[in-house]
Nucleic acid binder design. Sequence first.
DNA 1: CTAATTCTGTAACGTTCGTTATAGAATTAT
DNA 2: ATAATTCTATAACGAACGTTACAGAATTAG
Lengths: 192, 192
Amino acid sequence: MARNVEFDEELAISRAMDLFWKKGYTGTSMRDLCEVMGVNASSIYNTIGDKHQLFIRCIKYYTESRMEAARKQLKLIDSPFKAIEKFINASAHAITNEPDSCLAIKTTFELAVSDEQVQKILKKDNDFTYSLILDLVTKALEQKEITISQDKEMLTDFIINHFTGWHESFIIHKDEKRIKKMAKFLIEQLSR
Amino acid sequence: MARNVEFDEELAISRAMDLFWKKGYTGTSMRDLCEVMGVNASSIYNTIGDKHQLFIRCIKYYTESRMEAARKQLKLIDSPFKAIEKFINASAHAITNEPDSCLAIKTTFELAVSDEQVQKILKKDNDFTYSLILDLVTKALEQKEITISQDKEMLTDFIINHFTGWHESFIIHKDEKRIKKMAKFLIEQLSR
DNA sequence: CTAATTCTGTAACGTTCGTTATAGAATTAT
DNA sequence: ATAATTCTATAACGAACGTTACAGAATTAG
């Protein structure tokens, strides 16, 4: 019959993701994508589909990788409050040390308003982080490690909500200290 | 000599701004801009300049209008804490009731990372809001209306920082209640 | 080997992009 | 009115866009 060798799809998707991350969806051309993926346009259209489908694959890859990493990062920590603390500090560190801002947030503001498919993928990613933190907040409340409020759903939202602003602040002011101070204050507040 | 009539530049800029707001910088074409501005491309290039210069005019118009509005909104309020409370509630209301998310934030994530001119304009806008709230926080601390912390600079950052996340949350979840709860909690925290 | 099938590279499709040359309409001073 | 000047409308520029047709290289089954 016939051949079935293919290019390394995961690697190609990962490289496409990096380019979309840097230049945004609209700002990225198929020609540039072909170049970084090391694959011809024909192959992309035959296997993955058009530019939009390729992008969908890329944010799915991004969010799924993040979810996997978050799961790993937190499951080994015994104290729920320490886990929350670590999550907040890890976020602050990532925000002030990675060259590009979060792809999910960039995509939220570029596409999610007008693209329902993208919005749903990002909502799934948000809901995952939400349930992860909600679980920790619930346990921390039970163990009286958190005392600031008993409304665990609101507290979860409240904690996660800070990160987006930190991204914006760092893009505009490029001042790591400002982010670190807010992170420290947030953690102090939870347990006061 | 010669004529000097011109198209209504402010109106044209305002309409161009609306289109950039909806579609982003890269997503907006000069042809669409000409149409909504009611002006030919030649006229734009002769008076304002190229697409990038036009966009600069639009975000300047956006940020300056916002600064003017914020000044007006807050100067009539006697209690500094009430002014902060009003600012937070007005932000939460705007975020959950305007069709498109904040142009400044969208632009931060689309352009400010790679476009220094844009970054500086947005920094100016941020610094203005910062000094406005810092002034209120300072007075509220003096009058002991705020007790949560004495670090007025950090507190100012901390307050403003919430709004960006609220925008993201509303795009993803479209749930006004979640934003309102966070706003209520934030206000309660400041004065507890 | 040959035949069948699926991959990839080239090259081009028709559109749309940002931008501009140009000609003529509009306006003002004399 | 005439001349001078500045506007706008048309139309097109070359380049880049997303996408695809097609030929031939590569692979596998018989």
